[in-house]
Amino acid sequence: MSSPVLSIRGLTTEFVTPAGVVKAVNDVSWDLYPGETLGVVGESGSGKSVTAMSILGLVQSPPGRIVAGEILFDGRDLLTMSARVLRQLRGSQIGMIFQDPMTSLNPVLTVGQQIAEALQLHDRGLSREQARARSIELLTMVGVPNPEGRYDQYPHEHSGGMRQRAMIAMAIANDPKVLIADEPTTALDVTIQAQVLDVLRTAQERTDAATILITHDLGLIAEHADRVIVMYGGKVVEVADVLSVFAAPRHPYTLGLMTSLPRLDVELERLDPIPGSPPSLIDLPTGCSFHPRCRVSKGRDVCRTQVPPLYEVGGGQRAACHFSEEVPAEMAVAARAMGTDAGNGAP
């Protein structure tokens, strides 16, 4: 594989709150390679979005602060560079698509102005007319009908799907090397989701940007990602290519995510959720932070006392579990309970 376009090493981001220090991202490391789509999954509060905000340098401080780690982009550390240099990268080299297109666009500026601004911020020489022409091109690319007319409309005159297309146009305006999509379809209608994802995929192919797709939707990951990172309690618990993860997850949490999904092919009385609730990031469980909810641990001491590192489990797959070799057997149990074959675990 070629060298990564983005490398995160030991990233730790905290928030200081009256109740205590929240470790939102806790010693996270991963690489993003050119052209790939990296899926980042995990439930709310697992640190997915904070990781993205840390990359862009947009963690509000106070209360947030990045206390350790480095984020290497093209060999340069984003965390130590000056605000000015980082600003030049934001929106040009690294594009970002946010979750809620209803609130992410400025209500008093036209959609076109906001796309043109993204262009002009990074190309001072660009005239108004050129920026307009290029913005209309971008709107066309993301499948906005009547782009000339849409250019002069305000966000409130656009539907959610149209707004998210505009957000994508804005994010890819400067052909970024890295595109971060943070729950890009969560706020949209199901019928619109597929269209927006198609647009995202097209945009990504045109710009050849490496994409970080942050989501809690495993279906989205299965369809769009090349590799997967599973986060839990601010830590990476499993890394693998998408096929391996769905065929043979090696972390009990990943397995739990998969078995708790509703399925079309099996008649189920009820879903099989992960017991318990997400951990408090102020007061994480000792050892493996997943152990209170884990069905593999079975109360073994090591789970309570030692933090498992990300073990290599073969085929480039890594899992932060002391007993990752027991997970496939557990999966077979779960599959039998559902009456299906474990090998075709993909939802």
Binding site: Q88, R90, S104, L121
Partner: peptide, 17 residues
Amino acid sequence: GQDYIRTAEAKGAPPRT
């Protein structure tokens, strides 16, 4: 504190803008 302010920052807009 609004989302569109974060969008503007993510675009690389300087603080004054």
